[in-house]
């Protein structure tokens, strides 16, 4: 079981690098979506079957893999943009940064005091790496869409970490947290859409009317 888990998490970590390295918006969106679906499967692998877990997992996969990507893709299409052209942190540097971050995450996770059950999984390094990747995307990219993807990846990382507590957190709390996160991303998607109509762009360079 732990092997399967590690494969999934490892894939997710790879997707982090994909998201960091690609300039095409659609591939970043796809990377985030696939990562979301992969993570949605994880609780099914970790727990004995429970209908609530199934519901949560399916919902996660639907929203992260279907709803949000389609929302973002629609925005990309209607804004008629393709790439995040001049990012604040370039693709190669961010890829290097991401790789370093992933390695560092593995190294840090080995230092951290973990329970024996978690010591040999990639859950903690995966979580840290995703959080790091999410922050890099949030800080380094200028297109609103890429930033939303960064936020998604950041959340995926936190979700991964949350899986450590899957046994002890009541499902209703888990469900509430997921619902909140989903709604948050959904609302961000809506705001992105509104920004596109108001500003006629998704370039956040234009989004600095509000300043001192």
């Amino acid at each position: 079981m732990s092997e399967n888990l590690n494969i999934f998490v490892g894939l997710a970590m790879g997707l982090n690098l994909v998201a960091l390295g690609s300039s095409r918006l659609t591939s970043v969106i796809r990377a985030a979506a696939v990562q979301g679906v992969l993570l949605g499967v994880l609780p099914l692998l970790m727990e004995e079957f429970h209908w609530m877990i199934l519901v949560v997992a399916v919902l996660t996969m639907l929203v992260k893999g279907g709803l949000i990507p389609s929302l973002l893709n629609r925005a990309v299409k209607s804004a008629n943009i393709d790439r995040d052209l001049i990012p604040l942190v370039g693709y190669v540097p961010s890829l290097l940064l991401g790789a370093t971050g992933t390695l560092a995450a593995v190294a840090v996770a080995q230092r951290l005091p973990l329970l024996p059950a978690h010591a040999h999984t990639l859950l903690v390094p995966g979580a840290l790496a995703s959080v790091f990747t999410g922050l890099v995307l949030l800080i380094g990219r200028v297109k609103a869409i890429t930033q939303v993807c960064g936020y998604l990846i950041l959340e995926n990382g936190i979700y991964l970490f949350g899986l450590l507590l899957l046994h002890s957190t009541p499902l209703i709390v888990e469900g509430g947290i997921l619902l909140d996160l989903t709604v948050a991303v959904f609302i961000i998607g809506i705001i992105v859409d509104r920004i596109r109509t108001e500003f006629d762009t998704l370039d956040t360079h234009k989004l600095n009317m509000l300043r001192e």
């Binding site: 922050l135 800080i139 930033q147 956040t204 600095n208 009317m209 509000l210 001192e212």
Partner: peptide, 17 residues
């Protein structure tokens, strides 16, 4: 100090980090 409030979200998140 006022210049740090330049309207660029990316750097705002950097401040947070």
């Amino acid at each position: 100090t006022r210049r740090t409030q330049h309207g660029r979200l990316q750097l705002y998140i950097l401040y947070l980090v």
